[in-house]
Design a protein around this nucleic acid. Structure first.
Lengths: 286, 286
DNA sequence: CCATTATTGTAATTTTACAACAATGAATTC
DNA sequence: GAATTCATTGTTGTAAAATTACAATAATGG
């Protein structure tokens, strides 16, 4: 439905008149200030009359100035790229920690919007029916693969994660139709993984990837769970993308569990119960 | 900074008077309607006077009614579900995937508010000065520990993750003053880890934990990075909490990098560059 | 039970958003 | 080149909205 006022402002569109563009510019300079100012102060800041500001709002499919402020505020809150502030060397603890938390939330929010429910559905199908599940990842995605194994092994289906290139290649060559190979990669450009995907394909396995769309790895997969990672990986190692990957895996695991139905949950409870003796008891019953 | 009006509304806090609670209730019934209505219509809907609505806003740290509407609108836009809905057996793909994404975001948002900047600061200090860093985790936290190693080993400080109880105990016994032991646990009640923490303490290491506050493990630590995990772990394995743990580790790694200053970044670039040949090149220069 | 305080409503005031209309200016036509 | 048309912008005025100041009421404690 309604969306992204900021995008349309930045692209300086033809639907705005000269003075309306002045308004747009003032707003873009400090959107967070704009949502707190009245129509009068904004008009003065842009050197135009108040009704001009109002007409400006109408041009953007708002019913009026308050409605515009509302939409702009929501746009800012969703963590659109416009506000995705980068960590700076001068930041103190509060600042960089806030930024990282926000960037992470924003990435999850983006993924939520971008993920293809159909691909999820088909993946859950494939996992639920798999004879065997293999999970491959390297580098930062290695621990994601291991986490995925930790989640999926409860499903009564044999399930292994490999984080070693050679083991992955051998395991991929050993797969058969009915097996599912889940490959996780941030860039989708790691040569070894693309080759392994090809090997698994040739062996007849169903290849599912959690990776960057339109990447070489994505092109090798039967089912693609696309996750865009716009982050700058030059200096900082991929942070948000691997968290999105984990969330996708949560969705998959939950989907398979739901698919198995209620009687399956006693099976999960038993697994959980096996841990009880490793823990200190809770202080009280609650 | 301040955030999540909805959270505070639904927890029906003591800082509101009787009629102010009536206002809160009306708003919670349909928040999306509330952000579009005037103070007058809202007052009528709640059967209170207009100034009461205004005072209600002030009680919630807003400068007035418009400011309140703005914050509420932003709160709604972030998609943070104010009633963290649980996955139900009847959910279809879209539904449970939405719920999981939302629950994850909500958990990160909560953690952002709850995390103690002072503890973060001291942890960054300790990590930056550490002679050696050891990271321990078990189960789901095992892959978190491994991910942490993957992040922290770039810091020029020897850094290992152990996900095996015996290795952890031996390594903990071998630590010395100046060493930092980072222990990650969802519940904070795993007996083995609590014992290991004690061994590390006795050896003189600085014990830092990412875990549930007020837990046995938290009590054994020199520095506690507290993460509440209200989630029901009866059936589903901890999902959101380990993602929060990872985010905290991102913050720590970033903090240490910032602490080391700009000349350190060339060191990181070299590490990154070592990966270049393992990847397919990007289609174009951009 | 009275004094004190907190809570709520009434009325007045200020601020804000918007509509109706007038003015300006550019483009087009004769 | 003047006249006409159209789009754009500003001026004035008004209704609505938000807020203040203050009075009335209810709640609390000695």
């Amino acid at each position: 439905m309604s969306q992204n006022i900021l995008e349309r402002l930045k692209s300086n569109p033809s639907c705005l008149s000269k003075s309306e563009r002045k308004v747009a510019q003032v707003i873009l300079e400090d959107p967070n200030k704009a949502i707190r100012s009245s129509i009068a102060s904004l008009a003065k800041a842009a050197n135009v009359s108040e009704p001009t500001v109002n007409r400006f709002c109408r041009s953007l499919d708002c019913t009026g100035f308050p409605d515009f402020k509302l939409k702009l505020a929501q746009c800012l809150a969703t963590g659109t790229p416009y506000v995705s502030r980068n960590v700076e060397a001068s930041d103190n603890v509060e600042e960089y920690s806030s930024k990282i938390f926000e960037a992470t939330m924003s990435a999850i929010s983006d993924a939520k919007r971008a993920i293809d429910p159909n691909a999820l559905h088909r993946t859950v199908d494939a996992l639920a029916q798999a004879r065997r599940i293999e999970i491959y990842g390297l580098g930062a995605s290695g621990s994601v693969a291991q986490d995925a194994q930790h989640k999926l092994f409860r499903l009564n289906t044999p399930c292994v994660a490999y984080t070693d290139v050679l083991q992955q290649r051998m395991a991929a060559a050993a797969t058969k139709p009915g097996d599912v190979v889940l490959i996780i990669s941030n860039t989708g450009r790691t040569i070894a993984l693309v080759e392994t995907a090809r090997i698994a394909r040739d062996s007849g396995a169903t290849v599912i990837t959690i990776t960057q769309p339109h990447s070489p790895l994505a092109n090798e997969s039967h089912i693609l769970l696309g996750v865009e990672s716009p982050e700058n990986t030059d200096i900082y190692t991929p942070m948000t993308s691997r968290i999105v990957h984990l969330t996708v895996i949560d969705v998959l695991a939950t989907g398979v569990i739901l698919r198995h139905g209620p009687e399956f949950q006693s099976h999960l409870k038993r697994i959980k119960a096996a841990l009880a003796d490793t823990r200190f008891k809770l202080p009280d019953t609650d």
